[in-house]
Amino acid sequence: MYDAPTQASKLDQTDIKITANNVQVYYGDTHAIKDVSVDIVDRAVTAFIGPSGCGKSTFLRCLNRMNDTIDICRVEGQIKIDGEDIYDRRIDPVQLRAKVGMVFQKPNPFPKSIYDNVAYGPKIHGMTRNKAELDEVVETALRGAALWDEVKDRLHTPGTGLSGGQQQRLCIARAVATKPEVLLMDEPCSALDPIATAQVEDLIESLKEQFSVVIVTHSMQQAARISQKTAFFHLGNLVEYDDTNTIFTNPSDPRTESYITGRIG
């Protein structure tokens, strides 16, 4: 399935999928994100790293307007996806989130069957015309999340009965099933053991063939392993944003260096 030519994806790296300009986020009186501007590339993995509380998750949640669900949260500045301002008044966050999928820190399968978990997105978005199509979408998504072989015989058992790693891959399949263009991942491996983490990382590696993947992680090794671009956040500021190699080998900002070498964080 994932035999798209590597050249093509390298070419696509030059495409800019998301542009953020001077984004400010306030939680009540707290200024959580300070003037962040960043360009996120299509069909690549972008990692947000930084010490906890630095605002990386908050910023991630701005990209599909999940912060709308928090009453006291206020976002200023401009975020464009494919050149369209997602905070434009004409934008429906529901449509936006179908285009920008999200996977959360803790695996959160719905208390439904594995099949229904994956079929949920396509169903609400009216993406399929009949059961056969839906079955196909579910299978494709589960294969895409490298879960199909493990669950194909128990599609109608509860999703909550899977192991942690499987649950997280189920959540990824669930997000993939709605055919998003961007996939946001908020510390997707923090609740998983090393083996499950490796599986999910492999999965992310293959996902970047189709999506622009943005991942928040507290693990620098993970960022180094899987991402092409890395952004370092500190105290609500975007300190440095560059190719992952550059960040880890030759950071330009002393704060980045301190963090990478373990002196802050």
Binding site: D82, D88, R90, D92, V94, Q95, K99, E181
Partner: peptide
């Protein structure tokens, strides 16, 4: 490149 600025019929119904 689905545009976000045009609200499709499905979304209107859902809203």
């Amino acid at each position: 490149h689905r545009s976000l600025l045009t609200v499709d019929a499905q979304t209107k119904k859902r809203n």
